[in-house]
Design a binder for these strands. Sequence first.
RNA 1: AGAAUCUUCCG
Length: 232
Amino acid sequence: GMELRDVFVACVRSGDLTCARRAFDSLPERHLICWSLLLSAYAKRGCFDEAKALVEGMPEWDLVSATTMINLLSERGCPKEARGVFGQMELRNVVSWTAMLSGFARNGRLDEAEAMFDAMPERNVVTLNSMLAAYIQHGKTSVAKEFFDSAMPVKDLVSSNTMLSGLDLAAAEEMFGSMEAIDIVSCNVMLSAYAQSSAADRAEKIFESMAHHNVVSATAMLTAYARAGDVE
RNA sequence: AGAAUCUUCCG
Protein backbone atom coordinates (compact mmCIF):
# COMPACT_ATOMS: atom_id res chain seq x y z
CA GLY A 1 0.00 0.00 0.00
CA MET A 2 0.85 3.67 -0.11
CA GLU A 3 3.00 4.68 2.78
CA LEU A 4 3.90 8.13 3.99
CA ARG A 5 7.33 7.69 2.58
CA ASP A 6 5.83 7.16 -0.88
CA VAL A 7 3.79 10.34 -0.44
CA PHE A 8 6.97 12.14 0.48
CA VAL A 9 8.83 10.84 -2.56
CA ALA A 10 5.87 11.67 -4.82
CA CYS A 11 5.76 15.24 -3.50
CA VAL A 12 9.46 15.70 -4.12
CA ARG A 13 9.13 14.32 -7.64
CA SER A 14 6.21 16.57 -8.43
CA GLY A 15 8.17 19.56 -7.23
CA ASP A 16 5.76 20.42 -4.44
CA LEU A 17 8.27 20.98 -1.68
CA THR A 18 5.72 22.37 0.76
CA CYS A 19 3.83 19.10 0.52
CA ALA A 20 7.12 17.20 0.66
CA ARG A 21 8.10 19.01 3.82
CA ARG A 22 4.77 18.22 5.44
CA ALA A 23 5.10 14.56 4.54
CA PHE A 24 8.71 14.54 5.69
CA ASP A 25 7.75 15.99 9.06
CA SER A 26 5.13 13.28 9.46
CA LEU A 27 7.41 10.38 8.68
CA PRO A 28 7.66 7.95 11.56
CA GLU A 29 11.19 7.07 10.55
CA ARG A 30 13.35 9.50 8.66
CA HIS A 31 15.91 7.49 6.86
CA LEU A 32 19.05 9.32 5.82
CA ILE A 33 17.92 8.97 2.23
CA CYS A 34 14.82 11.04 3.00
CA TRP A 35 16.92 13.84 4.46
CA SER A 36 19.18 13.65 1.48
CA LEU A 37 16.33 13.64 -1.01
CA LEU A 38 14.79 16.75 0.51
CA LEU A 39 18.15 18.48 0.71
CA SER A 40 18.77 17.72 -2.94
CA ALA A 41 15.33 19.07 -3.87
CA TYR A 42 16.00 22.31 -1.99
CA ALA A 43 19.38 22.59 -3.66
CA LYS A 44 17.93 22.15 -7.13
CA ARG A 45 15.34 24.84 -6.50
CA GLY A 46 17.78 27.24 -4.93
CA CYS A 47 15.94 27.17 -1.60
CA PHE A 48 19.03 27.89 0.41
CA ASP A 49 17.35 28.99 3.62
CA GLU A 50 15.22 25.86 3.77
CA ALA A 51 18.27 23.76 3.00
CA LYS A 52 20.24 25.45 5.74
CA ALA A 53 17.50 24.81 8.28
CA LEU A 54 17.27 21.20 7.18
CA VAL A 55 21.01 20.72 7.44
CA GLU A 56 20.99 21.96 11.02
CA GLY A 57 18.71 19.10 11.97
CA MET A 58 20.43 16.40 10.00
CA PRO A 59 21.39 13.59 12.37
CA GLU A 60 23.97 11.98 10.13
CA TRP A 61 25.83 12.42 6.90
CA ASP A 62 27.09 10.16 4.25
CA LEU A 63 28.89 10.39 0.95
CA VAL A 64 25.78 11.30 -1.03
CA SER A 65 24.39 13.96 1.30
CA ALA A 66 27.81 15.54 1.69
CA THR A 67 28.17 15.69 -2.09
CA THR A 68 24.77 17.34 -2.34
CA MET A 69 26.03 19.87 0.21
CA ILE A 70 29.15 20.52 -1.87
CA ASN A 71 26.91 21.30 -4.80
CA LEU A 72 24.62 23.50 -2.79
CA LEU A 73 27.53 25.55 -1.46
CA SER A 74 29.14 25.79 -4.88
CA GLU A 75 25.91 26.98 -6.48
CA ARG A 76 25.62 29.49 -3.72
CA GLY A 77 29.05 30.90 -4.57
CA CYS A 78 30.81 29.43 -1.54
CA PRO A 79 33.58 27.21 -2.92
CA LYS A 80 35.69 27.59 0.21
CA GLU A 81 32.90 26.24 2.35
CA ALA A 82 32.36 23.45 -0.16
CA ARG A 83 36.00 22.58 0.17
CA GLY A 84 35.57 22.53 3.91
CA VAL A 85 32.83 19.92 3.63
CA PHE A 86 34.92 17.95 1.17
CA GLY A 87 37.91 18.08 3.49
CA GLN A 88 35.93 16.69 6.39
CA MET A 89 34.42 13.79 4.51
CA GLU A 90 35.43 10.38 5.75
CA LEU A 91 34.90 8.87 2.35
CA ARG A 92 35.22 10.44 -1.07
CA ASN A 93 34.56 9.00 -4.47
CA VAL A 94 34.73 10.07 -8.08
CA VAL A 95 31.38 11.84 -7.74
CA SER A 96 32.42 13.99 -4.79
CA TRP A 97 35.74 14.83 -6.42
CA THR A 98 34.00 15.77 -9.64
CA ALA A 99 31.48 17.89 -7.75
CA MET A 100 34.40 19.84 -6.28
CA LEU A 101 36.06 20.22 -9.67
CA SER A 102 32.85 21.52 -11.17
CA GLY A 103 32.13 23.78 -8.22
CA PHE A 104 35.50 25.48 -8.49
CA ALA A 105 35.04 25.90 -12.22
CA ARG A 106 31.61 27.46 -11.81
CA ASN A 107 33.08 29.89 -9.33
CA GLY A 108 35.77 31.12 -11.69
CA ARG A 109 38.57 29.07 -10.17
CA LEU A 110 40.01 27.20 -13.09
CA ASP A 111 43.34 26.51 -11.47
CA GLU A 112 41.70 24.93 -8.44
CA ALA A 113 39.46 22.90 -10.71
CA GLU A 114 42.58 21.68 -12.50
CA ALA A 115 44.25 20.92 -9.19
CA MET A 116 41.27 18.73 -8.28
CA PHE A 117 41.46 17.00 -11.62
CA ASP A 118 45.16 16.27 -11.16
CA ALA A 119 44.78 15.11 -7.57
CA MET A 120 41.80 12.83 -7.92
CA PRO A 121 42.50 9.11 -7.65
CA GLU A 122 39.94 8.11 -10.25
CA ARG A 123 38.23 9.76 -13.20
CA ASN A 124 35.31 8.87 -15.39
CA VAL A 125 33.58 10.38 -18.40
CA VAL A 126 31.67 12.86 -16.24
CA THR A 127 34.95 14.02 -14.71
CA LEU A 128 36.44 14.51 -18.15
CA ASN A 129 33.34 16.32 -19.37
CA SER A 130 33.47 18.57 -16.32
CA MET A 131 37.08 19.50 -16.98
CA LEU A 132 36.28 20.15 -20.63
CA ALA A 133 33.36 22.37 -19.62
CA ALA A 134 35.63 24.22 -17.21
CA TYR A 135 38.03 25.15 -20.00
CA ILE A 136 35.17 26.29 -22.19
CA GLN A 137 33.52 28.25 -19.40
CA HIS A 138 36.77 30.12 -19.00
CA GLY A 139 37.18 30.84 -22.68
CA LYS A 140 40.14 28.49 -23.09
CA THR A 141 38.95 27.17 -26.43
CA SER A 142 42.24 25.90 -27.74
CA VAL A 143 43.07 24.20 -24.46
CA ALA A 144 39.62 22.64 -24.54
CA LYS A 145 40.12 21.44 -28.10
CA GLU A 146 43.44 19.90 -27.21
CA PHE A 147 41.91 18.28 -24.14
CA PHE A 148 38.99 16.95 -26.17
CA ASP A 149 41.21 15.57 -28.91
CA SER A 150 44.01 14.15 -26.83
CA ALA A 151 43.18 13.81 -23.15
CA MET A 152 39.81 12.09 -23.15
CA PRO A 153 40.12 8.31 -23.38
CA VAL A 154 36.36 8.04 -23.07
CA LYS A 155 33.73 10.37 -24.50
CA ASP A 156 29.98 10.52 -24.83
CA LEU A 157 27.42 12.82 -26.37
CA VAL A 158 27.79 15.30 -23.51
CA SER A 159 31.50 15.53 -24.36
CA SER A 160 30.71 16.39 -27.96
CA ASN A 161 27.97 18.84 -27.07
CA THR A 162 30.26 20.56 -24.59
CA MET A 163 33.01 20.87 -27.18
CA LEU A 164 30.53 22.05 -29.78
CA SER A 165 29.34 24.82 -27.49
CA GLY A 166 32.86 26.20 -27.19
CA LEU A 167 33.60 26.53 -30.89
CA ASP A 168 33.11 29.49 -33.16
CA LEU A 169 30.33 29.23 -35.68
CA ALA A 170 32.35 27.89 -38.59
CA ALA A 171 34.07 25.26 -36.49
CA ALA A 172 30.80 24.34 -34.80
CA GLU A 173 29.10 23.85 -38.15
CA GLU A 174 31.91 21.62 -39.28
CA MET A 175 31.84 19.54 -36.11
CA PHE A 176 28.05 19.33 -36.06
CA GLY A 177 28.08 18.09 -39.64
CA SER A 178 30.48 15.32 -38.78
CA MET A 179 28.90 14.10 -35.55
CA GLU A 180 27.76 10.52 -35.77
CA ALA A 181 25.13 11.03 -33.10
CA ILE A 182 23.29 14.18 -32.11
CA ASP A 183 20.50 14.95 -29.71
CA ILE A 184 18.28 17.88 -28.82
CA VAL A 185 21.10 19.54 -26.89
CA SER A 186 23.42 19.37 -29.92
CA CYS A 187 20.74 21.09 -31.97
CA ASN A 188 20.13 23.66 -29.27
CA VAL A 189 23.83 24.45 -29.21
CA MET A 190 23.68 25.15 -32.93
CA LEU A 191 20.53 27.24 -32.56
CA SER A 192 22.30 29.28 -29.95
CA ALA A 193 25.39 29.68 -32.12
CA TYR A 194 23.26 30.89 -35.01
CA ALA A 195 21.36 33.22 -32.71
CA GLN A 196 24.62 34.77 -31.59
CA SER A 197 25.49 35.39 -35.21
CA SER A 198 22.02 36.70 -36.00
CA ALA A 199 21.71 33.91 -38.56
CA ALA A 200 18.00 33.30 -38.17
CA ASP A 201 17.74 31.60 -41.53
CA ARG A 202 20.22 28.89 -40.65
CA ALA A 203 18.71 28.58 -37.19
CA GLU A 204 15.34 27.96 -38.81
CA LYS A 205 16.75 25.12 -40.87
CA ILE A 206 18.02 23.39 -37.74
CA PHE A 207 14.81 24.09 -35.87
CA GLU A 208 12.68 22.64 -38.63
CA SER A 209 14.87 19.58 -38.90
CA MET A 210 14.42 18.76 -35.23
CA ALA A 211 12.09 15.93 -34.31
CA HIS A 212 11.45 17.39 -30.86
CA HIS A 213 11.82 20.81 -29.31
CA ASN A 214 11.93 22.00 -25.74
CA VAL A 215 11.82 25.36 -24.02
CA VAL A 216 15.55 25.81 -24.66
CA SER A 217 15.06 25.27 -28.41
CA ALA A 218 12.20 27.73 -28.43
CA THR A 219 13.98 30.49 -26.55
CA ALA A 220 17.12 30.04 -28.63
CA MET A 221 15.06 30.28 -31.81
CA LEU A 222 13.28 33.39 -30.55
CA THR A 223 16.64 34.91 -29.70
CA ALA A 224 17.81 34.23 -33.24
CA TYR A 225 14.77 36.03 -34.65
CA ALA A 226 15.15 38.89 -32.22
CA ARG A 227 18.81 39.37 -33.01
CA ALA A 228 18.08 39.25 -36.70
CA GLY A 229 15.56 42.01 -36.21
CA ASP A 230 12.49 39.98 -37.09
CA VAL A 231 10.88 40.27 -33.70
CA GLU A 232 9.99 43.61 -32.19
C1' A B 1 13.67 6.06 -2.73
C1' G B 2 19.01 10.31 -2.47
C1' A B 3 24.73 12.99 -5.01
C1' A B 4 28.77 15.08 -9.93
C1' U B 5 29.24 17.00 -16.37
C1' C B 6 26.66 19.85 -21.93
C1' U B 7 22.60 23.94 -24.70
C1' U B 8 18.50 29.22 -24.21
C1' C B 9 16.37 32.71 -20.98
C1' C B 10 15.55 33.91 -15.91
C1' G B 11 17.19 33.96 -11.24
